[in-house]
Computed example of a mutant assay.
Amino acid sequence: MSITRLTQRALPALVGGAVAVAALSAPADASSGWWYSSGHGASGYYNHVSQRATACDIKTDGYKAVVQITRATGTWYSVATDSHNDGACTSETPSPLFEGATKKIRVCVQKGSSKPVKCSAAHEFQV
């Protein structure tokens, strides 16, 4: 087999392999990870790259999904809510989260304007 023909056959495989290795070695999406409320009525996360929090109502139960993040004082505030179990989520940009800060996130459900309930465990993540 000639060198030219060998190169023509091997080059696509080498390029494909290089792309696969690059994709595998790229840093993971900088997010808090997906979190679920107790009872799995809501899910959500914070994405550091887009600086957006996403809430997803995933159960038709009369509750809305709420993603909460801690303030500098340690108190919780709601940064994104979604009240439609329609396969879509709602993303919001919270007030700036300071670079290098450690924050906590949790996902809850909430009925009307009452206090959020069935919250996930608090998860620390780096901004």
Results as ranks from 00 to 15, higher is better:
I69W: 02
A18G: 03
A26M: 13
A80I: 03
V107H: 00
N85E: 06
C89E: 09
S2Q: 04
S43K: 04
Q68T: 14
R5H: 04
E99Y: 05
G33Y: 07
Q51T: 13
Q126R: 06
V49D: 14
V67D: 01
V49A: 12
W35N: 09
K59T: 05
L97D: 02
Y46C: 01
Y45I: 00
S83Q: 10
Q51N: 09
A53S: 07
V19C: 11
Y63C: 01
V107F: 06
D61S: 13
M1D: 09
Y46K: 01
S113W: 08
S83T: 10
S43H: 05
G62I: 14
V15M: 05
A28V: 13
P27R: 14
D29E: 07
K64S: 11
A10E: 10
L24G: 10
V107Y: 00
S120Y: 04
G41Y: 08
E99F: 14
R5Q: 13
T70Q: 15
S114V: 15
K115S: 15
A23T: 05
R71E: 15
A13N: 10
P27W: 06
Q126M: 11
G41A: 14
G39T: 12
A20I: 09
A26K: 04
Y36V: 07
T81E: 14
G41W: 04
A22P: 02
H123T: 04
G16Y: 12
G74W: 12
E99D: 08
S83P: 01
H123G: 02
K111D: 11
T90N: 05
Q68G: 06
V127E: 11
E92H: 14
T90K: 12
G17P: 05
S2N: 10
T73F: 02
A28K: 15
S32R: 03
K64N: 01
A22C: 04
A53G: 13
N85G: 10
Q51W: 13
G33A: 13
I105C: 01
C89V: 04
T54P: 00
V21Y: 09
A101N: 06
S113Y: 15
R106C: 04
Y77P: 03
K111V: 08
Q126K: 09
Q110S: 05
V19E: 04
C108M: 07
N85A: 15
W76Y: 09
A30F: 04
P94S: 05
G39I: 12
D61F: 06
G74F: 09
A88I: 14
H84S: 12
D86V: 05
A23F: 06
E92D: 10
A28R: 10
T93P: 00
V19K: 14
A53T: 08
C56V: 02
G87T: 07
P96W: 07
Y46T: 01
P94L: 06
D57K: 11
A30P: 00
D82V: 03
A121Y: 06
A72N: 12
T54D: 02
H123V: 05
T4D: 03
A122R: 12
G17M: 11
A72K: 08
C119N: 11
T54E: 08
N47G: 07
S120E: 02
G87S: 07
G17H: 08
C108H: 00
S2L: 08
K111C: 07
S32A: 06
Y45E: 02
E124W: 13
G112W: 08
K115C: 12
S32D: 03
M1E: 08
S78N: 11
Q126H: 08
C119K: 05
G74Q: 08
T60C: 15
D82F: 00
K59R: 09
S95L: 10
G100T: 14
K64T: 09
P12L: 14
A80K: 00
